[in-house]
């Protein structure tokens, strides 16, 4: 379980200007919950994720994972990156084993574990390839396997499929769902795509920008398992109902939205 209580984070820009990346964020993520986070660019999604990962300090509030206050990165949390963050000089096998290696596991043990995960994510036969020889989708499979290899309780994913083409993204969504359905773990998944948020999540957290805070939390009632027919699901009336509801909330937040722009201008004058 992840408990986020009153977390506030302000960045100071180069010219001393302040950016309120997170303002009084309260959120509880249940065990084995798949939580998706949606919001316009710059609303603090990545900041929130990096705080949970223990990569950055915040100004106020607490983040507690399974009863332990977060201070720094820990073995209970693993991250998957939008740009994959693979070591270009290391083989698929060594990339997947990287987290285990940093933890000091023996070569034999970590390679055995890594091979298992490479099979799981469907990259069997590619163990000795370099990342540069793989497609984007395959690279992100490696990124996912590396994170799963350290057996985290919490998987933090920052737009992991954002750099992939539509079809590849579909396939990886199905794959992620089927992995998550089999080995339950807590996932916090950031995305720019409403469809992806609804498709994957138990709940969708909507964040609004300046200051970054939680605007709304929308439960997704679509029954699981969903991995079998992702395409069909997207045609279902439930799905479209939820996405159009999300869109109503999102459009008012969008910087190009008229009333939003007017509200922001008014705030500027009064505040």
């Amino acid at each position: 379980m992840i408990e986020i209580r009153g977390v506030t984070k302000t960045f100071t820009g180069r010219e001393g200007s302040e950016v309120h990346a997170l303002k009084d964020v309260n959120l509880t993520v249940g065990d084995n919950e798949f939580l998706t986070v949606l919001g316009p660019s710059g609303c603090g999604k990545t900041t929130l994720l990096r705080a949970i990962a223990g990569l950055i300090d915040w100004d106020e509030g607490d983040i507690v994972v399974d009863g332990e206050p977060v201070r720094r990165p820990g073995p209970d949390r693993a991250m998957v990156f939008q740009n994959f963050a693979l070591l270009p000089w290391a083989t698929v096998l060594d990339n997947v084993a990287f987290g285990l290696e940093l933890r000091g596991e023996s070569r034999a043990a970590r390679h055995a574990k890594a091979r298992e995960l490479i099979e799981l994510i469907g990259l069997g036969g590619f163990e000795s390839r370099l990342p540069g020889e793989l497609s984007g989708g395959m690279q992100q499979r490696v990124g996912l396997a590396r994170a799963l290899a350290v057996e985290p309780n919490v998987l933090l994913m920052d737009e992991p499929f954002g750099a992939l083409d539509e079809q590849t993204r579909r396939i990886l969504q199905e794959e992620l769902l089927s992995i998550w359905e089999r080995r339950r773990l807590t996932v916090v998944f950031i995305t720019h795509s409403m469809e992806e948020a609804v498709l994957l999540g138990d709940r969708v957290v909507l964040m609004s920008p300046r200051p970054g805070r939680i605007a709304e939390i929308v439960p997704i009632g679509i029954p699981r398992p969903r991995s079998a027919d992702v395409g069909g699901l997207e045609q279902s009336p439930e799905f479209t109902a939820i996405t159009s509801r999300l869109w109503q909330s999102l459009r008012t937040m969008h910087p190009d939205h008229r009333t939003a722009a007017r509200a922001a201008a008014a705030q500027e004058v009064t505040g």
Partner: peptide, 14 residues
């Protein structure tokens, strides 16, 4: 060097 590589290794406690 891609800064995300350093960040990635820090998430694994490097």
């Amino acid at each position: 060097i891609d800064a995300s590589l350093i960040e990635m290794s820090r998430t694994y406690g490097a």
